[in-house]
Write a protein that binds this DNA or RNA. Structure first.
Lengths: 166, 166
DNA sequence: CGAGGAATATTGCCATGGCTATAGTTGCTC
DNA sequence: GAGCAACTATAGCCATGGCAATATTCCTCG
């Protein structure tokens, strides 16, 4: 068996990306937990808080998170039970319902965000010189745009079908 | 509520990292599935295949993957049932047992790896100029070393305790 | 208008995996 | 050697979340 396949620079590159991500996620999760939030709940809270009216239809919330629509149903169940958000019927479409952040939810987010930003700075952005950071982010943006169809509003271009990198 | 918190460059930076990782993971998972593997199973297979004797104690396997020891027990259960690996009693310590990759497991990995490498190149490394890629990897290495204690054998230095909290 | 198909949220069923308790083993200390 | 703490793998119980089925509601086309 070809042992040195694992020394392939591509494997190494992915390993770095995965481990950097995993390490940061673990730090985030620990801090979220201090504020009684799971990573998914924090994600939901931020997505709602940055949406007009602090609300989003269940479907749209699912599209903006890592969850399926049924997953969103359940997270919203839990968070509604905890008073972080509530459901609101959509007046124009009786199939839809909104998830709306409550005041308590916004407060919780406010409590969590400063520490979150501190962690990012301490363990990610602050570890790099400004121009290094810019280089990393430029690279990640290119990867993201290639591999994550429809991630940003800006990239409406079709997903590149081949390895073409202009 | 402070809406423009979400325009904070730190939030943006993490968002890029997370989405690049998520996009790549999704592509990987799709290709693994073509070969009848889950992401965790692929991880286990590679960890074992790159270990001396194609084997690892359950505990060590857990330490090298994203799983707890009980998680490893179950993945190994499934993979043993599928014939990808088998358990072997440790002769020197009757508490321990090894997970050993079978020939079928190595074959499965051989079938999967070329496509995996192609995906990495097509959607990650190949999207960047060589010097861009090097810059990204250098940055990720720094982040990884900071945030992921004990990730590599090379970085024995203690985790920076530069702290600022509480 | 009415029928059929698409969209929306939810629920049932299931796989995955973490935490904790447990049983077996080892090694250290007295 | 006996006792005890640490280690190792596993099983029980539970939370999370995906997929598919389901019930509503909406929309389009005839």
């Amino acid at each position: 068996m070809n042992q040195n396949v694992f020394d392939d620079p591509r494997i190494t590159a992915v390993g770095l990306l995965v481990e950097a991500h995993a390490g940061l996620s673990a730090r985030f999760a620990a801090q979220f937990e201090e504020h009684g939030l799971s990573p998914v709940e924090f994600e939901v809270l931020t997505r709602l808080a940055r949406s007009p009216g602090n609300q989003l239809r269940m479907t749209d919330l699912a599209a903006q998170t890592s969850l399926s629509t049924s997953g969103v149903t359940r997270v919203v169940d839990r968070m509604e039970r905890d008073g972080l958000l509530c459901r609101r019927a959509c007046p124009s479409d009786r199939r839809s319902s909104y998830a709306v952040v409550t005041t308590a939810g916004l407060q919780r987010l406010d409590q969590t965000l400063p520490g979150h930003l501190r962690i990012i700075e301490q363990w990610f952005t602050g570890q790099l010189e400004p121009e290094e950071l810019r280089a990393v982010l430029d690279g990640l943006r290119r990867v993201r745009d290639a591999v994550h169809p429809g991630a940003t509003a800006g990239s409406t271009e079709p997903v590149p079908e081949e390895d073409a990198r202009s």
